[in-house]
Design a binder for these strands. Structure first.
Lengths: 123, 123
DNA sequence: GACATATATGTAGGTGCGTCGATGGCGTTG
DNA sequence: CAACGCCATCGACGCACCTACATATATGTC
Protein backbone atom coordinates (compact mmCIF):
# COMPACT_ATOMS: atom_id res chain seq x y z
CA UNK A 1 0.00 0.00 0.00
CA UNK A 2 1.17 3.53 -0.60
CA UNK A 3 0.93 6.68 1.47
CA UNK A 4 -2.54 6.29 2.80
CA UNK A 5 -2.75 9.54 4.68
CA UNK A 6 -1.50 11.62 1.81
CA UNK A 7 -4.31 10.32 -0.34
CA UNK A 8 -6.68 10.72 2.55
CA UNK A 9 -6.15 14.28 3.61
CA UNK A 10 -5.62 15.75 0.20
CA UNK A 11 -8.81 14.69 -1.59
CA UNK A 12 -10.74 15.17 1.67
CA UNK A 13 -12.02 11.84 2.80
CA UNK A 14 -15.54 11.74 4.25
CA UNK A 15 -15.63 12.25 8.01
CA UNK A 16 -17.32 9.80 10.30
CA UNK A 17 -20.32 12.02 11.00
CA UNK A 18 -22.69 13.59 8.54
CA UNK A 19 -23.70 11.53 5.55
CA UNK A 20 -23.26 7.77 5.80
CA UNK A 21 -19.67 7.01 4.92
CA UNK A 22 -19.01 5.27 1.64
CA UNK A 23 -17.35 1.90 1.35
CA UNK A 24 -14.21 3.24 -0.27
CA UNK A 25 -13.72 6.00 2.26
CA UNK A 26 -14.34 3.58 5.10
CA UNK A 27 -11.58 1.33 3.82
CA UNK A 28 -9.10 4.17 3.55
CA UNK A 29 -9.85 5.56 6.99
CA UNK A 30 -9.72 2.05 8.44
CA UNK A 31 -6.32 1.60 6.84
CA UNK A 32 -4.82 4.57 8.65
CA UNK A 33 -6.53 3.68 11.92
CA UNK A 34 -5.16 0.18 11.61
CA UNK A 35 -1.68 1.64 11.48
CA UNK A 36 -2.42 3.39 14.77
CA UNK A 37 -4.16 0.46 16.43
CA UNK A 38 -1.07 -1.27 17.74
CA UNK A 39 0.57 -0.85 21.16
CA UNK A 40 4.10 -0.92 19.78
CA UNK A 41 3.35 1.71 17.14
CA UNK A 42 1.57 4.00 19.60
CA UNK A 43 4.57 3.83 21.88
CA UNK A 44 6.89 4.51 18.94
CA UNK A 45 4.97 7.64 18.04
CA UNK A 46 5.02 8.76 21.65
CA UNK A 47 8.71 8.07 22.06
CA UNK A 48 9.63 9.93 18.89
CA UNK A 49 7.40 12.86 19.77
CA UNK A 50 8.96 13.22 23.19
CA UNK A 51 12.53 12.79 22.00
CA UNK A 52 14.99 15.70 22.40
CA UNK A 53 14.63 17.12 18.90
CA UNK A 54 11.38 15.37 18.03
CA UNK A 55 13.29 12.72 16.17
CA UNK A 56 14.84 9.36 16.98
CA UNK A 57 16.77 6.61 15.26
CA UNK A 58 15.99 2.90 15.34
CA UNK A 59 18.81 2.08 17.73
CA UNK A 60 17.27 4.34 20.37
CA UNK A 61 13.84 2.76 20.08
CA UNK A 62 14.51 -0.96 20.39
CA UNK A 63 15.48 -0.88 24.08
CA UNK A 64 12.45 1.08 25.43
CA UNK A 65 10.06 -1.17 23.54
CA UNK A 66 11.78 -4.43 24.30
CA UNK A 67 11.41 -5.53 20.68
CA UNK A 68 13.99 -6.71 18.21
CA UNK A 69 15.46 -4.33 15.68
CA UNK A 70 13.72 -5.90 12.65
CA UNK A 71 10.39 -5.64 14.43
CA UNK A 72 10.91 -1.98 15.22
CA UNK A 73 11.95 -1.31 11.62
CA UNK A 74 8.80 -3.09 10.48
CA UNK A 75 6.54 -0.88 12.60
CA UNK A 76 8.35 2.29 11.57
CA UNK A 77 7.84 1.31 7.97
CA UNK A 78 4.11 0.90 8.46
CA UNK A 79 3.85 4.26 10.21
CA UNK A 80 5.86 5.93 7.47
CA UNK A 81 3.79 4.39 4.67
CA UNK A 82 0.65 5.55 6.45
CA UNK A 83 1.93 9.12 6.35
CA UNK A 84 2.35 9.45 10.11
CA UNK A 85 6.15 9.48 10.17
CA UNK A 86 8.92 10.97 8.07
CA UNK A 87 12.26 9.32 7.50
CA UNK A 88 15.53 11.16 7.03
CA UNK A 89 18.78 9.31 6.64
CA UNK A 90 21.87 11.07 7.96
CA UNK A 91 24.99 9.01 7.64
CA UNK A 92 24.47 5.62 9.16
CA UNK A 93 21.43 6.63 11.13
CA UNK A 94 17.82 6.88 10.01
CA UNK A 95 15.97 9.56 11.92
CA UNK A 96 12.22 9.31 12.20
CA UNK A 97 9.99 12.25 13.08
CA UNK A 98 6.26 12.88 13.25
CA UNK A 99 4.51 14.44 10.28
CA UNK A 100 3.22 17.63 11.89
CA UNK A 101 -0.54 17.50 11.46
CA UNK A 102 -1.03 13.93 10.35
CA UNK A 103 -2.49 12.61 13.58
CA UNK A 104 -4.51 15.77 14.01
CA UNK A 105 -6.08 15.18 10.61
CA UNK A 106 -7.27 11.77 11.73
CA UNK A 107 -8.65 13.22 14.95
CA UNK A 108 -10.57 15.81 12.95
CA UNK A 109 -12.10 13.13 10.77
CA UNK A 110 -13.46 11.40 13.84
CA UNK A 111 -15.16 14.53 15.25
CA UNK A 112 -16.05 16.87 12.41
CA UNK A 113 -18.97 18.74 14.02
CA UNK A 114 -17.75 21.32 16.53
CA UNK A 115 -20.48 20.65 19.06
CA UNK A 116 -18.12 20.20 21.97
CA UNK A 117 -17.20 23.52 23.57
CA UNK A 118 -20.05 25.39 21.87
CA UNK A 119 -17.54 28.05 20.88
CA UNK A 120 -18.02 30.27 17.89
CA UNK A 121 -15.09 28.66 16.14
CA UNK A 122 -16.14 27.98 12.58
CA UNK A 123 -14.53 25.91 9.89
CA UNK B 1 -12.14 -7.82 26.94
CA UNK B 2 -14.53 -5.64 28.91
CA UNK B 3 -15.65 -2.09 28.32
CA UNK B 4 -12.37 -0.67 27.17
CA UNK B 5 -13.43 2.92 26.70
CA UNK B 6 -15.15 3.13 30.06
CA UNK B 7 -11.91 2.19 31.74
CA UNK B 8 -10.04 4.45 29.38
CA UNK B 9 -11.85 7.74 29.75
CA UNK B 10 -12.60 7.52 33.41
CA UNK B 11 -9.14 6.97 34.92
CA UNK B 12 -7.65 9.26 32.29
CA UNK B 13 -5.41 7.25 30.05
CA UNK B 14 -2.17 8.88 28.99
CA UNK B 15 -2.47 10.85 25.76
CA UNK B 16 -0.21 10.22 22.81
CA UNK B 17 1.84 13.37 23.29
CA UNK B 18 3.71 14.51 26.36
CA UNK B 19 5.50 11.87 28.35
CA UNK B 20 6.29 8.60 26.58
CA UNK B 21 3.20 6.44 26.81
CA UNK B 22 3.35 3.40 29.05
CA UNK B 23 2.89 -0.14 27.84
CA UNK B 24 -0.41 -0.67 29.59
CA UNK B 25 -1.93 2.56 28.33
CA UNK B 26 -0.73 1.81 24.82
CA UNK B 27 -2.47 -1.54 24.88
CA UNK B 28 -5.75 -0.06 26.04
CA UNK B 29 -5.72 2.76 23.52
CA UNK B 30 -4.76 0.31 20.79
CA UNK B 31 -7.68 -1.88 21.79
CA UNK B 32 -10.21 0.86 21.20
CA UNK B 33 -8.52 1.98 18.01
CA UNK B 34 -8.60 -1.60 16.77
CA UNK B 35 -12.34 -1.59 17.24
CA UNK B 36 -12.48 1.48 15.02
CA UNK B 37 -10.01 0.25 12.43
CA UNK B 38 -12.45 -1.77 10.37
CA UNK B 39 -14.39 -0.61 7.31
CA UNK B 40 -17.58 -2.39 8.32
CA UNK B 41 -17.54 -0.93 11.82
CA UNK B 42 -16.79 2.58 10.59
CA UNK B 43 -19.76 2.35 8.28
CA UNK B 44 -21.92 1.02 11.09
CA UNK B 45 -21.04 3.98 13.29
CA UNK B 46 -21.70 6.35 10.43
CA UNK B 47 -25.02 4.72 9.56
CA UNK B 48 -26.23 4.78 13.14
CA UNK B 49 -25.11 8.36 13.65
CA UNK B 50 -26.97 9.55 10.56
CA UNK B 51 -30.11 7.54 11.28
CA UNK B 52 -33.41 9.39 11.92
CA UNK B 53 -33.24 9.33 15.73
CA UNK B 54 -29.57 8.52 16.01
CA UNK B 55 -30.38 4.89 16.54
CA UNK B 56 -30.84 1.82 14.37
CA UNK B 57 -31.64 -1.86 14.75
CA UNK B 58 -29.72 -4.73 13.22
CA UNK B 59 -32.31 -5.39 10.55
CA UNK B 60 -31.79 -1.89 9.14
CA UNK B 61 -28.02 -2.27 8.96
CA UNK B 62 -27.51 -5.56 7.16
CA UNK B 63 -28.71 -4.35 3.76
CA UNK B 64 -26.56 -1.18 3.47
CA UNK B 65 -23.44 -3.09 4.45
CA UNK B 66 -24.07 -6.18 2.36
CA UNK B 67 -23.12 -8.39 5.29
CA UNK B 68 -25.00 -11.22 6.91
CA UNK B 69 -27.00 -10.62 10.10
CA UNK B 70 -24.67 -12.61 12.36
CA UNK B 71 -21.70 -10.69 11.02
CA UNK B 72 -23.37 -7.34 11.69
CA UNK B 73 -24.32 -8.48 15.19
CA UNK B 74 -20.71 -9.47 15.74
CA UNK B 75 -19.39 -6.04 14.78
CA UNK B 76 -22.02 -4.27 16.88
CA UNK B 77 -20.96 -6.37 19.81
CA UNK B 78 -17.33 -5.34 19.41
CA UNK B 79 -18.27 -1.67 19.15
CA UNK B 80 -20.48 -1.96 22.21
CA UNK B 81 -17.83 -3.73 24.27
CA UNK B 82 -15.38 -1.01 23.30
CA UNK B 83 -17.71 1.61 24.74
CA UNK B 84 -18.51 3.25 21.41
CA UNK B 85 -22.12 2.07 21.15
CA UNK B 86 -25.04 1.67 23.50
CA UNK B 87 -27.61 -1.10 23.20
CA UNK B 88 -31.25 -0.75 24.18
CA UNK B 89 -33.68 -3.56 23.60
CA UNK B 90 -37.26 -2.56 22.89
CA UNK B 91 -39.48 -5.52 22.19
CA UNK B 92 -37.98 -7.73 19.54
CA UNK B 93 -35.64 -5.08 18.26
CA UNK B 94 -32.25 -4.04 19.60
CA UNK B 95 -31.56 -0.37 19.00
CA UNK B 96 -27.96 0.76 18.87
CA UNK B 97 -26.87 4.36 19.36
CA UNK B 98 -23.55 6.17 19.70
CA UNK B 99 -22.19 6.90 23.13
CA UNK B 100 -22.16 10.72 23.04
CA UNK B 101 -18.56 11.69 23.58
CA UNK B 102 -16.83 8.34 23.19
CA UNK B 103 -15.29 8.99 19.79
CA UNK B 104 -14.48 12.54 20.80
CA UNK B 105 -12.55 11.21 23.77
CA UNK B 106 -10.40 9.14 21.46
CA UNK B 107 -9.81 12.11 19.20
CA UNK B 108 -8.74 14.17 22.19
CA UNK B 109 -6.27 11.51 23.25
CA UNK B 110 -4.62 11.68 19.86
CA UNK B 111 -4.15 15.47 19.97
CA UNK B 112 -4.05 16.54 23.61
CA UNK B 113 -1.97 19.71 23.39
CA UNK B 114 -3.85 22.56 21.78
CA UNK B 115 -0.46 24.13 21.41
CA UNK B 116 2.36 21.88 22.39
CA UNK B 117 3.49 24.04 25.27
CA UNK B 118 5.25 21.13 26.97
CA UNK B 119 3.61 21.68 30.33
CA UNK B 120 3.11 18.89 32.79
CA UNK B 121 -0.50 18.01 33.41
CA UNK B 122 -1.67 16.84 36.81
CA UNK B 123 -2.35 13.15 37.04
C1' DG C 1 -48.74 -24.17 23.01
C1' DA C 2 -47.21 -23.71 18.13
C1' DC C 3 -45.33 -20.51 15.01
C1' DA C 4 -42.86 -16.43 13.01
C1' DT C 5 -39.57 -12.76 13.45
C1' DA C 6 -35.45 -10.41 15.42
C1' DT C 7 -31.18 -11.11 17.52
C1' DA C 8 -27.32 -13.52 19.66
C1' DT C 9 -24.07 -17.33 20.00
C1' DG C 10 -21.22 -21.37 18.37
C1' DT C 11 -18.23 -23.41 15.17
C1' DA C 12 -15.08 -23.42 11.36
C1' DG C 13 -12.26 -21.88 7.46
C1' DG C 14 -9.46 -18.51 5.34
C1' DT C 15 -6.66 -14.59 5.81
C1' DG C 16 -3.91 -11.05 7.90
C1' DC C 17 -0.56 -9.48 11.20
C1' DG C 18 3.12 -9.25 14.93
C1' DT C 19 7.36 -11.22 16.09
C1' DC C 20 11.83 -13.21 15.47
C1' DG C 21 16.30 -14.99 13.45
C1' DA C 22 19.16 -14.71 9.53
C1' DT C 23 20.88 -12.16 5.76
C1' DG C 24 22.65 -8.32 3.00
C1' DG C 25 23.59 -3.43 1.92
C1' DC C 26 25.99 0.64 3.31
C1' DG C 27 28.45 4.09 5.69
C1' DT C 28 32.17 4.69 9.33
C1' DT C 29 36.43 3.69 11.51
C1' DG C 30 40.77 1.55 12.41
C1' DC D 1 40.88 -2.73 2.84
C1' DA D 2 39.05 -5.00 6.56
C1' DA D 3 36.15 -4.90 10.50
C1' DC D 4 32.32 -3.00 12.87
C1' DG D 5 27.76 -0.83 13.58
C1' DC D 6 23.12 0.73 11.78
C1' DC D 7 19.34 -0.45 9.20
C1' DA D 8 16.05 -2.80 5.83
C1' DT D 9 14.40 -7.02 3.85
C1' DC D 10 13.20 -12.06 3.76
C1' DG D 11 11.21 -16.34 5.33
C1' DA D 12 8.72 -18.58 8.80
C1' DC D 13 5.92 -19.40 12.88
C1' DG D 14 1.91 -18.53 15.74
C1' DC D 15 -1.94 -16.04 16.99
C1' DA D 16 -5.88 -13.09 16.25
C1' DC D 17 -9.50 -11.63 13.40
C1' DC D 18 -13.31 -11.38 9.63
C1' DT D 19 -16.86 -13.84 7.59
C1' DA D 20 -20.35 -17.25 6.91
C1' DC D 21 -23.49 -21.23 7.99
C1' DA D 22 -26.03 -23.39 11.47
C1' DT D 23 -28.22 -23.09 15.73
C1' DA D 24 -30.03 -21.16 20.06
C1' DT D 25 -32.64 -17.60 22.67
C1' DA D 26 -36.21 -14.15 23.09
C1' DT D 27 -40.33 -11.65 22.03
C1' DG D 28 -44.73 -11.21 19.98
C1' DT D 29 -48.80 -13.49 17.58
C1' DC D 30 -52.52 -16.77 16.47
Amino acid sequence: MGTALAEMTMPQISPLAGEPIEKHDAERLAGVLKALADPARLRLLSLIQSAPDGEACVCDLTAPLGLSQPTVSHHLRILTESGLLEREKRGVWAYYSLVPSAIGAIADLLTPPRKRGAKKAAR
